[in-house]
């Protein structure tokens, strides 16, 4: 199914300070939106607001033409979040973490082991997360995106702590996701090199 995300007039205050006002965009299937802006400009806040973690001052977000606030839980099962922190328990192994994650949203027909192998963690999947390097932990978090069967990826600084190979891997998986008809919103300072054109939204 072809999904569609539209946002209009987004306005967000943090305390007295206005982070952004009147921001809008539309995202169709197979498209990617890069959120740009200086540090502290509100990229992460915008992404969190889109996910529903922060309440917007004003503005509407529509998923397939319906405001997401009408059924936030249904909307939450349409995306997967890739944040600053991995969201995996340090005391559990990547495999255990990924198996738990499978309960949280619709899943692809792939085994967690295969997905962890595909992100390059075949030797580490049975080790506790705390024994993995920061980059390896990011790779484990990436496995969550790969196994989820959802149209929308929300990514906050996805290239942090990744080596060149890791970065290329993220871009390759993003490419696959987009050609499948998925969509992504990415907050990043870095230029994305993807096979599809990248829309940019600059937050002042």
């Amino acid at each position: 199914m072809n999904h569609k995300l539209e946002a209009a007039d987004l306005t967000l205050f943090r305390g007295e300070r206005c982070l952004f006002a009147g921001i809008g965009f539309a995202l169709a299937h197979g498209a990617v939106l890069a959120l740009k802006g200086a540090n502290g400009s509100g990229k992460t806040s915008l992404l969190r607001a889109l996910a529903g973690l922060i309440d917007l001052e004003e503005g509407t977000i529509k998923w397939d033409g319906r405001p997401v606030l009408e059924d936030p839980q249904q909307f939450r099962s349409q995306f997967v979040w890739y944040g600053h922190r991995t969201g995996f328990k340090q005391d559990l192994t990547p495999l255990e973490n990924l198996k738990f994650d499978a309960m949280l949203r619709p899943q692809r027909d792939a085994s967690p082991r295969d997905v962890l192998c595909s992100v390059g963690l075949e030797k580490q999947m049975e080790l506790p997360m705390r024994q993995l390097s920061a980059g390896q932990q990011r790779r484990a978090a990436l496995a969550r995106m790969l196994i989820a069967d959802v149209p929308l990826w929300l990514m906050d600084e996805p290239f942090t702590n990744l080596d060149v190979a890791g970065r290329e891997f993220v871009e390759a998986t993003l490419g696959t996701h987009l050609t499948r008809g998925g969509m992504a919103i990415i907050a990043t300072h870095q230029a994305l090199s993807l096979s599809v054109p990248v829309d940019e939204l600059v937050i002042q």
């Binding site: 996910a51 939450r76 944040g83 328990k89």
Partner: peptide, 18 residues
């Protein structure tokens, strides 16, 4: 607390489950 610190609370809040 630990869920908050390692970001897994975020994942729980953003999951499709109630």
């Amino acid at each position: 607390m630990s869920d908050y610190e390692d970001g897994s609370l975020e994942q729980l809040l953003l999951s499709g489950q109630p």
